[in-house]
Amino acid sequence: MTVPTTPVAPAPASPPMSAPARRRFDPAVATAFGCIVALLLLGSLYSTRFLSPDYLLQQLQVGSFLALVATGLMVVVLLGQIDLSVPWIVTVGGMMATAAAGHGPLGAALAIPFGVLCGVAFGLFNGLGVAYLRVPSMIFTLGVDAVAQGLMVLKTGGSAPQDMATPLMRDLATGRALGPVPNAVWVWLLVGTATSFLLSRTTYGRAVYAVGNREAAAYLSGVRTRRVTLAAFALSGGLSALSGALLAGYSGKAYQGMGDGYLLPAIAAVVLGGTSILGGRGTYLGTTAGVILITLLQSILSVVQMPDAGRQVIYGAVILAMLLLYGRGAKIGA
């Protein structure tokens, strides 16, 4: 046959790298890890303590609470959504876990699962609003945050209920059962490995990326996109609540506003790790790097006894600088 077939379509503008090759090398993740090393070296100029294993393990322990929140948030962000209900779902996790602990030995045994379950319930509610009612996630999760706050204020208002953490919660958050590595870091490692597997090796993970790229296309390919979204928000709620339960163990008790400082650092960690806030792109390794980066930055700024004002300014400036380094979008018209 001499008739030429249809001309070959021009190659897409994006580099023709195969998927596995791209997974092996992500410039954003590499830059994030580079920034971590740079931060550590910079810190070591101030004090050699910054390079000691003890300090680093302690940072990982403190960072594990942020890591749990960021893990759930990352899955939601991969869908192109956002979860602003993190602060009070963290508090729900802490408060409901400690509240369950007040109901005898059975309650104490079920404290953490109960707290997580409450978080999952709020997450499911988020998912229903976003996936089924199609309300923009930014406003719906904001409303759920207010409702969670309202319920917790009602629950604790006036009276002083049981709010002390159980021994198990304290142990998980502060103990070191296996070698020198804190238990909280083991929890992080476990959750992280599971999430990484979920995202890169399961149908669900593929569906998350597909929905994040183009939900209509995913739907036409047979993905039940609404259930995928529902599950992602439930996961985010559960992990936030787990973080809250551990946080209650870390500080000994649950209190109002305990989750306030976690939303913005978690978003920053996810984005600094190279996950696109528009969805569909990002790796779990990157989120890990982002969490370590944020934790180290906060720690170093507090160790060098920077006043709070300067700390905020440097914190914001460093995040902006790193975003400008590798988080920039495509040019208009390109």
Partner: peptide, 19 residues
């Protein structure tokens, strides 16, 4: 800078609050 508004303004907000 071609940054996503949501993250860019979180970071710049930290600076403004520090000031």
């Amino acid at each position: 800078g071609r940054l996503q508004p949501i993250v860019a303004t979180i970071a710049s907000g930290a600076i403004y609050f520090g000031l």
